[in-house]
Structures are given as structure tokens and as C-alpha cells.
Amino acid sequence: MITDFLNGEYVHEVQILIFSLTLGGVYALMASGLTLVFGVMRIVNLAHPAFIFIAAYISYYAFTELNLDPMESILINVPLMFIFGVIVYRVFLASGADQPRYTEKTVLLTFALALMIEGVLGYLFTGANRSTTPTYTTEVFFTGEAQYLVPKAQLYALLMSLVLIIFTWSFLQFTRMGYAIRATMQNRAAAQTVGVNVKWVSTFSFGMGTALAGAAGALMSFLFSFFPNTHWEWVALLLSLIVLGGMGSLVGAVVGAFLLAGTAGLVSDAYGPSWSPLTFYAALFLILLIRPQGLFGKKLEMT
């Protein structure tokens, strides 16, 4: 199989996989904030793609007005979006966090929030299609004997996404705050009894999830074109990624992102691009039927 690839038997398929898998990293970064916020607070944040869009607009204006590379504007987006997330959480979502029907409530609340953001973005930035155009968006590498084409922008975005995800993972695994966040994910009541201020941890996690959306938005600004109401297209995509990987699991989000990005690429190649969104929905249905907790998900232990 591998030698077939190298001998150029599957040149076309490998090329398709290079195109789609290099996008997988950005999908994973987009989904990581969503899965974190669900894991800690059981919030299904339908406004997550809208957050990504806000950040994409910040990067857009940083690029056009300040001449700042979108990769550099991550440094602006992350703190700004963290603060934005903290405010949104405090104002809209903090109350009722310990009530049994909280998750259902958050679906409606964040749906409304997404609508509001869409309206504001439309008012401020009009419905025009935008994207940032640093020079590397039009450049490619050639690699291997078969001279595979690797778009520079996608490769850079992939590497940046992986760096940010590994950073997030290490933060959760090794820092004091990371311990507190994981403890709150696994058993909110017990976290409280060992002295974790779960309100602050929840606020921080939501800020962190939004900051990840901020970083993802910067990368999105040069990979895809965007205008205010296309964020809805991302909701189903991102939700199916994290359901496939297991809601609340960072590793699952990454694996789910690459799996679905690859599959969608191949499907789109074989049956036409209009079929590729279907891949995500089909995956969503299948995983819910076969393994509702997802590939890396742990069965929810409700207290």
C-alpha cells in the first residue's frame, strides 16, 4: 500500500488527502474550544463559529489597516477574545449552571447569541465576502517524486494549529489551573469539595475556549472567505467533529477533525463538492447510532 503511494499509483488520491488533511488542523483548532467548553460546563455553544468569525474580522482589519500578518494577529485575537468570552459567560451563561436542564438552556441561549453576533457583524462589516491575502496564500511547495502540491497557507495553518493544540493540551495536563479544569470536567461537585472555585474555573474555561476560537479565526481569515451569515455552515461541521471524537475530549476533537477532513476530501473528489458537507452529517448520524459517547468520549457521569 505504502509503496504503491510512493510509486505513484495513487497520486491523485494522495494529492486530495494533502489538500484536505492540511485543513484538518484548523478544523481541530476550531473544534477544540467548543469541546473544552462542553466538557467543563456542558454548554453546547452554537455561537462558537460566530466567535471565530468575530476574530476573523479582527484579523481582517489588522491585515488591511495595520498591515499585520494574520498569523501575528493571533497575538491580538487571543487576549481580546478571552476577555470577550469572559464577559459573554458572565452576562449570558453563568446563572443556572448547576441546574439540571442547563445544557438545553445553553443551546437556545447560544443560538440567540449567534443570531445577535451575525446581525452586528452584518451591520458593521456588510455582507461582502472577505478574506486576508498575505503573500503565502498564493504560494505552494512541491514535494516528493510525484511533485505533490502543498499550499503554503494550509501548511502554515496546520503547523500553527498543532502548536496551539499541543500548548492547550499541556496546559490542561500539567498546570494547576489545568488540573482544576479537568477535575471540574470529571466531577463538578467533587471539584468544589476539594476547594476548586468552579465558578471561576468555568469562566476561565469559557474565556479559553473563546480565545481558541480567536486563534482559529485568524487562521480562517486567509484559508476561507467569510461573510457574516456563513458561520452557520460551520456549526454542523464542528459539532459533528466533536461528537465523533467524543464531546469534551481534546484528543477526540483532533482525531475527529482529521478523519472527517480526509473523508470529506475524498468524497468531494469522487462525487462532487456538494456531497462533502453530507459526509459530516452522515458521520454525525452514524456515530450517534453506533457509539454515542464518541471515539474518545467517556460516558457522562452525572451527579
Partner: peptide, 18 residues
Amino acid sequence: RSLFPHMTVGENLRMGGY
């Protein structure tokens, strides 16, 4: 159910000293 089910025994004790 007062433990952190997916943390190790050692990590649970560490959380005790949080």
C-alpha cells in the same frame, strides 16, 4: 461518586491538596 473517575489515585490525592 466524590472522586475524579478518570484521574489516577495519585492525581486524586494531588487534587486533595489543591
